[in-house]
């Protein structure tokens, strides 16, 4: 997994609540059998018009969101289907961080498995970030944030700074880009002992 330590990037504002994974990556693109190549289909139904051209109304198509790597959204982001294609699509498009007041559980876990950092901030803090991003856009510029996973802080250049929390184990995995499965297999003897204690036959080899 790609490690995550610090990241500075442009904020893309998606001012919507309950963005579900069917929107993030519509089902017609779930037939691929690879983990890559999903970015082109991210938010497909919102992002493109019927003729396939970019929808100028869609938030992430606006000039201020060009090159965005930090996605800002309202509460319950990533609800619905468990499809890990959602974080794959976000990552493939270029996002490394998603900030929202709350996330759906499965999506949250799926991000952490893919070197992508979901950050929960209070509803007020998220509203403040939306305001700051909108103010920057109105002034014809892009809004940037600095994310530091070592210090667990998110900050801009104009005085906004907040800390956030992540599960310590997940944080360590992200910082070091650790392979979860490799870590768990270190405890294969304990798994085997559990199985034996529960009357399961031993695993061959």
């Amino acid at each position: 997994m790609q490690p995550f330590t610090t990241h500075t990037g442009i904020v893309g504002s998606l001012d919507r609540a309950n963005v579900d994974t069917d929107q993030i990556i519509p089902k017609q693109f779930l037939k691929r059998i690879e983990r890559t190549g999903f970015g082109q289909f991210l938010f497909c139904d919102w992002r493109f018009q019927a003729d396939g051209s970019p929808n100028p109304e869609f938030e992430l198509n606006r000039p201020e969101a060009k090159g965005a790597t930090i996605l800002l959204a309202r509460r319950n982001f990533g609800c619905g289907s468990s499809r890990e294609h959602a974080p794959w699509a976000l990552a493939d498009y270029g996002f490394r961080v998603v900030i929202a007041p709350t996330f759906a559980d499965i999506f949250f876990n799926n991000c952490l498995q893919n070197g992508m950092l979901p950050i929960r901030l209070s509803e007020d803090d998220v509203a403040e970030l939306f305001r700051r991003a909108a103010a920057a856009a109105a002034a014809g510029s892009q809004y940037r944030l600095h994310v530091d996973l070592k210090a667990c802080t998110v900050a801009d250049d104009a005085g906004f700074s907040r800390s956030f929390t992540v599960d310590p184990f997940r944080r360590q995995c992200l910082l070091e880009g650790l392979d979860d499965i490799g870590l768990s297999l270190r405890h294969a003897d304990r798994i085997a002992a559990w199985e034996a204690a529960h009357g399961l036959p031993a695993v061959a080899g």
């Binding site: 983990r35 468990s82 499809r83 890990e84 974080p87 499965i106 876990n109 799926n110 498995q113 893919n114 184990f169 979860d180 499965i181 768990s184 297999l185 294969a188 798994i191 199985e195």
Partner: peptide
Amino acid sequence: IGTSEVEHVLATQTLR
């Protein structure tokens, strides 16, 4: 669970 977790369960029969 997500697909990475599917892989974890296939390999270890456990989940974190």
